[in-house]
């Protein structure tokens, strides 16, 4: 069966994921070493060790995401995170930075290494290089490839591939984008936050509900209408005489219907985005996807549209997997 890799932003969400049928849970420490460095989220060292024990007792695995790029001179924080994840019994660490991969391969030879989507390795040459140089065993593919391209990659590499099937979308090559840094001074890859909450302000005005990021108006919606989170790439902007979602609509990824095709394309694991979401989200999404991968295994048709309420903009897309870009 394809492995279902599920998010957990808190110990409660980790337990919810395991109980809902996650084969594997991924999570991170409560600092800038992981790309979901949000207020009130993530794990202390003790919580991580307890979470790993909980998962292992129930036959599930835990991957620790240490997937931001270390700041020069501050690499100790990242090195300690790798050592602590290994000591806590993590089944693998998810890394993006070449220096950190080299460090982990050298100092923790027994630790399984996964290449984070933040590394944006999107072709067999890049992926095989990471495998040869650092012993990377699995790559999380950036959300810019079609199913055919994923199948072609799998034909040319022994490295396992993991792809996103549900959740918020980063429409550039995985955080390699300066929109958030420009508006807030904080970067997705370096500080682990895109469009950080500390720079978000909502206000009700005579013109409607306004959402701003770093002072820039990102959305204005009618009172009572859904208000998207002001992620810059999903903002509504005016350019020339056009006003609209210039980069991407505020929609989320839902590739449920593509699971059989992804399976055929040789994908090993399916990943659900959403470490910033609640345990209610985790339970519902994991349960639905566990049922879907079991259905795919039996050759049954895929269930559809079960999770629309949980998606941003209350609308879903199959993203690049089956899309021509605007």
């Amino acid at each position: 069966m394809m492995e279902l890799v599920c998010p957990a932003g808190t110990p409660a969400a980790l337990r919810a994921a395991v109980e809902a049928g996650a084969h594997t849970v991924y999570c991170g420490f409560a600092d800038e070493t992981n790309a979901r460095n949000f207020p009130g989220l993530n794990f202390s060292r003790e919580e991580m060790a307890a979470g790993i024990d909980f998962a292992h007792d129930r036959g599930a695995k835990v991957l620790v995401a240490i997937n931001t790029f270390p700041r020069a001179g501050a690499q100790d924080l990242w090195h300690r995170a790798v050592a602590d994840a290994a000591a806590a019994g993590a089944d693998a660490v998810i890394l993006a930075d070449i220096g950190l991969l080299a460090h982990a391969a050298e100092r923790h030879p027994g630790l399984r290494l996964h290449l984070s989507v933040q590394a944006a390795a999107a072709n067999p040459d890049a992926i095989n290089l990471y495998a040869q140089a650092f012993g990377v065993r699995r790559v999380v593919l950036p959300r810019v490839l079609t199913v055919e391209e994923i199948a072609a990659i799998n034909r040319e590499t022994e490295v396992e591939t993991e792809v996103f099937v549900f959740g918020g979308l980063c429409v550039m090559a995985e955080g390699r984008c300066s929109l958030s840094s420009y508006a807030t001074g904080l970067s997705p890859n370096m500080n682990g936050v895109c469009s950080p909450a500390s720079h978000v302000a909502y206000a009700e005005t005579a013109k409607g509900q306004e959402a701003r990021l770093g002072g820039f108006l990102i959305h204005r919606t009618a009172r009572g209408a859904p208000v998207p989170y002001p992620t810059l790439c999903k903002g509504c902007f005016t350019s020339g005489d056009q006003t609209g979602h210039i980069f991407e609509d505020p929609v989320s990824l839902d590739a449920t219907r593509l699971i059989p095709a992804l399976r055929k394309a040789g994908v090993s694991a399916l990943k659900i985005e959403g470490r910033q979401r609640s345990r209610a989200y985790v339970t519902q999404v994991v349960r639905a996807f566990r049922a879907a991968v079991e259905a795919a295994e039996r050759g049954d048709p895929m269930p559809e549209g079960l999770l629309t309420r949980l998606t941003e903009g209350q609308a879903a897309t199959t993203g690049a997997y089956a899309k021509t870009w605007r």
Binding site: P39, G40, P196, A280, R309
Partner: peptide, 23 residues
């Protein structure tokens, strides 16, 4: 977030504090 996306909950002021409380 789903309650927020659907407009059933709205927030104002310090968004980071709201997220920290929620989480």
């Amino acid at each position: 977030d789903a309650l927020f996306f659907s407009g059933e909950l709205t927030i104002g002021g310090d968004t980071a504090a709201v997220l920290a409380l929620r989480n």
